[in-house]
Design a protein around this nucleic acid. Sequence first.
DNA 1: TCTAATACATAATTCTCTTATGTATTAATC
DNA 2: GATTAATACATAAGAGAATTATGTATTAGA
Lengths: 110, 110
Amino acid sequence: MHSPELLKGTLQTIVLKVLKDHGKMYGYEITQRVKELSEDRIILTEGALYPTLHKLEAEGILKTETVMLGKRVRKYYALTAEGKSLARERVNEFIDFIKTMSSVLQVELS
Amino acid sequence: MHSPELLKGTLQTIVLKVLKDHGKMYGYEITQRVKELSEDRIILTEGALYPTLHKLEAEGILKTETVMLGKRVRKYYALTAEGKSLARERVNEFIDFIKTMSSVLQVELS
DNA sequence: TCTAATACATAATTCTCTTATGTATTAATC
DNA sequence: GATTAATACATAAGAGAATTATGTATTAGA
């Protein structure tokens, strides 16, 4: 991503929507999926991702399931009912935001 | 604006594009124009706007002209040649950002 | 055997914006 | 005539979200 500033504030939206579309996922998997979907333009850093996941879990937006793969820990995250509704809300907010910005910047979205 | 977080990183883009479209403007006028264009959804605060204008001026992106209206000072800002090119760049970056986000969030933009 | 990839986590720092505060003029309302 | 709202600038303190840095550890590949 050329302008990382723009990404600020979108992390929760991204995480929630990706989890909504792909079901339960673990942290590293989320980073890879987002990298893929964005064609390497959005690279989620662990320093931002993990604290966000922990926060959303603490708020009851996400629920977790810890799995052992041999000796390695893998922590799966999934949306709770509340999380699903928040995911919808966040995406709608983002769409509103884009529409508003398009008016201000006077750009057409194809 | 319901989610002010999303606005982070867009201030420069907004200021540059509005100045590009409307020619020389003073700070307060920019806040009003943005408020109008966004139908009251984007309210630029002075604490963010003025430091940004000063910074862009110091960087040679904006040039200023101070006018006295009776006893009141009014400071007009306009894009320099460099500013015009930066405005174009920032808007393109924003469009790219929207496209990337649309892929990740799997939303259609009408 | 070494390096890269996988997989988690947290702390220090940076950056941008909000909130608060300050000054001052002008227009509108009571 | 006095008060309030709007106009118009400016800066400082604080908050919030991310980056960068660091740490631990396993697994796969060269």
